[in-house]
Amino acid sequence: MTSVDAVTEDPLLVRGRIQPSAEFLTHRRLADRLARVLLAAAAAVSVLVTTGIVYVLISESAGFFAHVPLKEFLTDTEWTPVFENARYGMLPLLAGTVTIAGIALLIAVPAGLALAVYLSEYAHVTVRETIKPLLELIEGVPTVVYGYFALLFVTPLLQRIIPGLPGFNMLSPGVVMGIAILPYTASLSEDAMRAVPKALREGGYALGFSRFRVATRVVIPAALSGISAAFVLGMSRAVGETMVVAIAAGQNANFTFNPLEGAATITAYIVQISMGDLPYGSIAYQSVFAVGLVLFIMTFLFNVAGFYLRRRFREVY
C-alpha cells in the first residue's frame, strides 16, 4: 500500500519523532471534526430531497384540490382537464397505469423468478458471472429507446398476430417494459436466493432431492421475503416507468383495462402536459402535481414494503 507513506509525508508531522507536533494534532482534530460535519451534511441532503418532493407535490396540488373535490378526483371516470368542459376523475389514468404495470409484471415476475432459480441453482459460477453484467446492459438501455422499440417494432409485430390492434395500445409497452425490468426482478430474487445458507440446500440434497426440488421446496420458501421484495420493487418501477408508455400507449385518458386499447398512464399524462404550453398556475397545470402525488404515494408504499422485506431476509441468516 503506497498510502502508508502519506501519513509520514504530511508536512505538519515532524519527521523522525515519535511524538507528532501539537500544531499537527490541532490541525488534525479540526480536519476530523470538519469532515464529520460535512459528511453528515451530505447524508442529510437525501432527507432534504425527500422533504422537497413531498413539499412540492403537496403545495402545488393544494391549489388543484381547492378547485376539484377529492371525491370527484377519486371516483369520476372521465379525465379531461384540458377540455372546455373539464372533468377531473383520475380513474382512467390509474386504470392505464395498473393495466400496463400488470402486463409488465406478468412477464417480469415469473420469468425473473425462473431466471433467478437458473442463475442461483443451476448455472456454473463462470456462466453466472458472465451473464449478470450482460443482464445489467438490458436495464441500462434508455427507456426512450424502449419506447421507440415498442411503438415501431413490437406493435407492428403484434398487429400481424392480432388483426385490428390499434397503433397505440397497452399490450406492446407492457411487454417491452416487462422485458426491461426483468433483469431487476431477476437480480433481486437471485440475491435473496444466494443469501439462503448452503447448509439448507445440502440438507435437501442429503434427502435425495433433485435441484428442482431443492429450488422449489427449500430455496424459494426460505427466500420468500426477498422474492416478495423483488415483486414489490418491480411493481414500483413498472408504475413509475414513463417513456415507454408515453411513446407507445397513446395519450388519451381511457377508462379501460383492455390491453388491446390505448390509454394514457399517470406518467404519460405528466409528460403530455409538460410538452404543451399550459400557463403555470392553471388547474390543468396543477393537476400534474395532483396525479404526481398519487404516483409518489403508490411507489412510496411499494418501496418501503420492499425495503423491510429485503431487510428481513438479510437478518434471518
Partner: peptide
C-alpha cells in the same frame, strides 16, 4: 429507509420536484 425509498422514486417525480422548486 429514506435513501432506499429515493432510489425507487420514479424519475418523473424528480422532474416535478425540479419544476415546482
Amino acid at each position: 429507509v429514506n435513501v432506499s425509498n429515493l432510489a425507487g422514486v420514479p424519475s418523473i417525480i424528480y422532474g416535478l420536484l425540479a419544476l415546482g422548486l
